[in-house]
Design a binder for these strands. Structure first.
Lengths: 354, 354
DNA sequence: ATAGAATTTTGGAACGATCCAAAATGGGAG
DNA sequence: CTCCCATTTTGGATCGTTCCAAAATTCTAT
């Protein structure tokens, strides 16, 4: 017979508590508590007896009760702007993994870019007495409002979307450097009219990436032509719209640096539908390196944000804050590295149908 | 000056509790508790005074403390097999939304299809005294093992992956019916050699979808040719591999019913790279209707699992269990409806480049 | 055998809410 | 002015843990 985890009182009405365990092991509840916390104080023999009792009774630790006494719980809030964006889904999975491994329990909230929802969610997290939060602020989040909604003494790290003027540490990729590399790559391939498409001026991430685009052009002694910045929603459809606007204008660009991979996918699709072969007639680069990027038609040249690692960094950064390390030292701009595939033409294989 | 939420004791060392509020409002903590729970018993004037005190002190409700006395908390576990699969990301967002609206707080766990991780996560959820869980079991989860890891008296609903023999209610789309519709559509378009690609026999979802495929063929008086079932991982690359195997075999199929959209995307891409125009030379249908499906090249004909609604159903089903309704009556197979786009050829526009 | 030190164990007070029976208050009828 | 009843309010026990000072036990050296 396999060892069944059910103990003799597994079907009791109430929960099996530390007191029940203590009674069965013939010790006091304090001793059981000591065993639970892995204390060195308790004698080996006693430890064994207590563990046996816990097994027999099917005891389950009650974290809520424990954290009532401690200052904070093992809960950590994860507030994401848009879970349906694969990039954020990957980031979420990364953070979840890292937190769980460190003994924290992530509570998830998806704001769908809704700042009202975000405010509600922040309050709920406070009510749960979370040890801290990792937040990717919804678009349109105001630095001041966030400061009002989240007391500065509770650990929080901001990820992926920098809040200017906020005292909270920021963890995210180096957008400017990444975009600069991407655009320089296009310049090296001979492109001179390089558009930037997607997002708009109100998004810090867009501003950082545009800055990188400008840097690269200026670095090559070229003036950045602001009319080549196309502000469209950071969506697939946004990519399509930008392509249409760009192509229908005078002197269409020969290369497109996209706000992110989603926009780039929309753009490549729109180009393909016009019969333009991406990677031969025109170059496209994305940003983020989501899983789908390499399966796009054609596979996207993009800038990797090292999503998984970023998630780990976030978890670690928050842990640092919880341990009361200096917030300033925690801000972190991860590397962002160019991944060359086919959409830029550098490795174009000339396969005929794109 | 805008009304600052900071009260006079917002920077106290400890937390502001109902006792502090009670003191300031000149009432007992019981009264404050009554106000908190929205009781009708308390006089209007007192209610006002208490609310004023809460505002002034910046009181934040402590859900953990409250749930210590109640049988269970407002936490609900969400256990997902693979968050990186856009389908599950959408489902997760849907469930999260529905739970939050009903006043529950979802705690998230991504098992990455790892049953060891899943067991750990289940335990963590128990320790958090969750009101219930919504679980999409990791591949390879054994019904008996799950029953051991999750006591039957704690509400749980299984979603998307039926566990045969489990007493827990199952909520998911009608896979068999959906696949039958899809394959019938292919039959109507004149296809006779229709392959089923992706997943394998150990996955209940695959078995259900294969059953639908078989139903459709048999319904048209055709024998289901088992050699047309290609068992490959339910991934993009799996789709590619299946296409290669199928095309290199004798008498290649003219249509492919795919386990899900991811496989279908891998398949369409592999076909395109071989110069085969999907929607003209060959037909492909997917399953799930993830957001990317309509942006695929060509847009995928697929079966919608009504993901968002499914998420809502899960939340509602769990709520029913928490309210101690009959588990059997909660099982639910949602509709699964065919969405015709271009990959099957029914609406092929003949655009040249696919 | 015994003081003193070292090692183990323990009872009771927290933590911040809810719940219940009982007490206080207010109003209307006699 | 009292009594009764309806409306409000309240103290204290409780949920399951941790923490702390103090008690009990064991060990060591004399």
């Amino acid at each position: 017979m396999p060892s069944a985890p059910k103990g003799d009182s597994a079907d009791r009405v109430g929960r099996v508590t530390i007191v029940d365990v203590a009674r069965r092991a013939g010790v006091s509840k304090s001793t059981v508590s000591l065993v639970l916390s892995g204390s060195e104080l308790v004698a080996e023999a006693t430890k064994l007896r207590v563990n046996e009792a816990m097994g027999a009774l099917g005891y389950v630790y009650h974290r809520g009760a424990a954290s009532l006494r401690a200052a904070s719980s093992d809960l950590v809030g994860m507030i994401m702007g848009d879970l349906n964006n694969p990039f954020f889904a990957e980031l979420t999975a990364g953070i979840e993994d890292a937190l769980f491994q460190r003994g924290f329990t992530p509570i998830l909230a998806n704001t769908s870019e809704d700042i009202v929802r975000q405010a509600q969610v922040l309050r709920a997290m406070r009510e749960h007495n979370v040890a801290g939060i990792i937040i990717s602020p919804a678009r349109g989040t105001d630095t001041w409002a966030l400061a009002q909604q989240w007391p500065s003494h509770i650990p929080a790290v901001i990820t992926m979307r920098r809040m200017i003027g906020s005292s909270l540490p920021y963890i995210g990729p180096d957008n400017q450097k990444g975009e600069r590399d991407a655009v320089e790559h296009l310049l090296k391939l001979g492109h001179r009219r390089i558009a930037f498409i997607g997002g708009d001026d109100s998004m810090t991430t867009q501003r950082e990436r545009v800055a990188g685009w400008r840097d690269a052009l200026n670095g090559w002694g070229l003036a950045a032509d602001e009319s080549l910045i196309f502000e469209v929603p950071p969506t697939r459809d946004g990519g399509r719209v930008a392509i249409e606007r760009a192509l229908d204008g005078p002197q269409p660009p020969t290369a497109f640096a996209c706000y992110n991979d989603i926009v780039a996918m929309g753009a490549t699709r729109a180009l393909a539908l016009r019969g333009i072969v991406v990677g031969r007639d025109v170059a496209v680069v994305g940003f983020d390196d989501i899983a789908d990027a390499e399966h796009n038609a054609p596979p996207l040249t993009t800038v990797s944000a090292h999503t998984r690692e970023m998630g780990m960094r976030c978890a670690e950064g928050l842990l640092g804050l919880i341990r009361r390390e200096d917030p300033a030292s925690l801000s972190f701009a991860g590397d962002a590295s160019l991944i060359v595939r086919e959409s830029c033409g550098a490795r174009f294989q000339g396969r005929g149908v794109s």
